[in-house]
Amino acid sequence: MLFVAGLFAVLLNYPLLAAFDHAGRVAGVPVLYLYVLLTWLLLIGITGWLVRGER
């Protein structure tokens, strides 16, 4: 789980973040906004899954 935390810390930081830091939009929503929220959701999902799996 420490690895997951580390991985997403990298995913949601510069310089990777900069890759999505542009003015484009997907379905009307800014790319950056979408990227951050979806990655975050993924992190929550993985955490929930890992925690469940350990039970």
């Binding site: 789980m1 420490l2 935390a5 997403f8 949601l12 951050v36 992190l43 929550i44 890992l50």
Partner: peptide, 20 residues
């Protein structure tokens, strides 16, 4: 803009390490 999210993203990033 999106700068505010960091304050809530931080705890989210740390959460997997809480078990430790």
């Amino acid at each position: 803009g999106l700068g505010f999210v960091g304050i809530y993203l931080g705890p989210g990033l740390l959460a997997p390490a809480w078990w430790l």
